[in-house]
Structure formats: C-alpha cells, structure tokens
Amino acid sequence: MISRWTVVVDRDDLTKTDVLHDELPGLPELDDCEVLLRVDRVGLTANNVTYGVIGDVIGYWRFFPTTAEGRGVIPLWGFADVVESTVDALPAGTRVYGYLPMSSHLVVRPKLTSSGFVDAAEHRTDLPSVYNSYLITTSDPAYDPRLEDLQVLYRPLFMTSFLLADQLVDNDCYGARTVVISSASSKTAFGTAQCLRDKGVRLVGLTSPRNVEFTKSLGLYDTVLPYDAAVDVEPTVYLDFSGSADVRSALHDRLGEALVKDISIGLTHQAASQDARSQFFFAPDQLRKRTADWGSAGLAERFGEAWRGFTAQAGDWVGIARHSGPDELIDVWQAVLRGRANPDTADVITF
C-alpha cells in the first residue's frame, strides 16, 4: 500500500488545518510525459504565510489545487525525488529542488530545460514561471548536499532579497540616504540587508523589543531599533516586511516628504496592505527585467556569487530545528502563523 497525504488550510482562516489521507494499492498510473515526485525535505518560514494571505491576489492557491471545498494547499520550497516517471531524462532517483505542496507526493508534467524542467501542467501555464521551474541537483552549480537545510530555508527568500536589493541599487536607492527595514529579524529582511551592505546607504532595522539583541548580533544593520523608536528624518526608503499599518503610518507621519519610497514585501502581520502609499514588490517582475538585461547565465552568475557569500555566514546566524511528518508540519505552521517562531531558529521538515 502507498500512503499519501496532503495538509489543507481554510482559505479564510489559516489557523484551521486538516490532513487528507489517501491509501493506494500501488503507485498511481501516470499519463505520458508525467512524473511522480515524493516530497522529501522542505523549509517553513513567514514567507509561506504570505502565500496564504495573498493567495487570491497573486494566484498562490492555484499551484496545487485541492477538491476540498474552501480549503487550499500552501506552497513550500524544498527537495523531492522522482519515484515514477514516463520521461526518460528523469528516471527514478532524480533529485530536484523547487516549489512543492504541503503534501507527500506531486505529479508534474515536465518540459525539460538546461538545468531541470518546467511543470507544464495546464493549470500552471499562466502562473509566474519562477514558481514552475525545478532544478535537477546534478545540474545546479549552487547545490551542495551538505547545505540542503540552508537551501530549503534561505534560497527562495534570498532570491527575493537579492532581487529587492538589486531593484534599489538599480534605481540609485531612489535618492535615499537611509533604508529602513521592518521585521528586521526575519530571514528575507536580513538577507536584503546583507545584499545592501556597502551600497552607500545607512541600514536601519526595526523589530520587536524581544528581537533587538538577536538582530544586532547579525552585524548587518548600522542601527537596530524597536518599533516605537523614532527614526532620523532624512531621505529614506522603507522596506516593509511586516505589513503593519501602525508602523507605516508612524513612519509617514514622522518622515513626511523625506520618505521617498515605501515598498511592501512581506506580510508577517497577515494583512495585505490596501494603503495607496505603499508599492508592492513582486520579485518575478525584477527577475524578468534582469534576465533581459543580463541573460539567464549572467543572472545565475550574479545570484550565485551573492548566494555563496550569504551561505558562508548564514549557518552561524540561525540554528536548524528539524521536524518530521504532517502532524509536526502543522505544529510548525501554527507557530509561524502566530508569530511564535524564534528568530534564531529555523524549521526544516522531512516527509
């Protein structure tokens, strides 16, 4: 018997979860050009909460559809292994990295590329291509089997960090002298700070009082302040990883016209911003621009250099907490959802 499972969440109340089990007498029969993946290892961070909060806005609920009414499947980043295949170039045992469901298995319809494949399943064809691409580990120059935990945790976040910092640098930081970053202890936020080091701007991290010391210990920010502290009035870009309306309003009130740009990225407060003063950063847009500017190889080279610099330090910043199976996956989801996850640990789940 083959046991398959999927964790679904209520699309209107992300705290409500359920595990759907499916017992099969054997591996499912695949159509031509289909491959069955067995999900092996994933990371779970506040970034995954964002997928649920704005699932209808960007289309995140559509990647891994479920027949459970009113429910959805949260996407994760991680590694999976081919267990059944009708594609000669992807035999059983092939290990891939990419966008995966909260589920033990995934059927994909690969369209081969130089580094892996794109899932050409019909329901994914009009969704952002960055989420449809899978890397074969043996063709990925950035892959290191010793660093799989760091990759599932940081690589998708760091790509956002890399592209966000690149957009700022590409626009001369919009004339700002300071970049203020909220949720400064979060992984995407401090990845962005790392990419902006030595770019000619002062980096100010805002965080909750309990996370001030940890955020200072990273050594990435010029100044770390609790949320209720006043920032200096000078030309400033605000990178909003928290989605907090109160923090945004306080900054606008204090800085006035000195706030030259307000960019919303993360939603750790679980509320999609409706504030017209904030511009939403969508990483695939900058990815498309830089692919056109530099070519795929040029982009991969620049990202690879930044990624290696980041991973050389990241292992010292955060400890890895390891979990296993759907029940522990749900426990981690609930902790991250409620903001109870510690900034100095990161969660990896094996299936």
Score class of each variant (00 low, 15 high):
Met1Val: 11
Gly72His: 12
Gly59Asn: 06
Lys216Phe: 05
Ala250Asp: 15
Tyr97Thr: 08
Val82Arg: 07
Val224Ala: 03
Gly309Met: 02
Leu287Gly: 04
Val8Ala: 12
Lys289Ile: 13
Asp172Val: 04
Thr138Asn: 11
Asp140Phe: 01
Asp198Val: 03
Gly298Leu: 06
Asp56Ile: 01
Ala321Arg: 15
Val204Phe: 07
Ala245Gln: 04
Asn342Ile: 04
Ala271Pro: 01
Leu37Cys: 01
Tyr99Arg: 05
Ala46Ser: 15
Arg95Cys: 00
Asn47Tyr: 05
Lys187Thr: 12
Leu255His: 08
Glu305Gln: 08
Arg338Pro: 00
Asp144Ser: 09
Ala184Ile: 09
Ala314Arg: 00
Val9Gly: 11
Gln279Trp: 12
Thr223Cys: 09
Leu112Pro: 10
Phe282Gly: 06
Asp172Thr: 11
Val318Tyr: 00
Tyr99Ile: 03
Arg308Phe: 02
Gln334Glu: 11
Arg38Ile: 00
Leu259Gln: 08
Asp10Lys: 10
Tyr143Ile: 00
Leu150Asn: 04
Gln286Glu: 15
Ala142Trp: 04
Val57Met: 06
Ala335Trp: 05
Gly59Arg: 13
Asp10Arg: 08
Arg248Glu: 02
Val204Thr: 08
Ala229Met: 03
Tyr174Ser: 04
Gly72Met: 14
Arg254Gly: 06
Pro25Tyr: 05
Thr350Gln: 09
Ser133Val: 05
Glu23Asn: 14
Asp347Asn: 15
Glu122Ser: 07
Ser244Leu: 00
Leu44Tyr: 14
Ala258Ile: 07
Ala300Pro: 02
Ala121Pro: 03
Asp316Cys: 01
Leu239Cys: 14
Thr268Asp: 09
Ser273Pro: 12
Glu148His: 01
Thr15Leu: 14
Gln279Leu: 11
Asp81Trp: 13
Leu20Asp: 04
Leu225Gly: 06
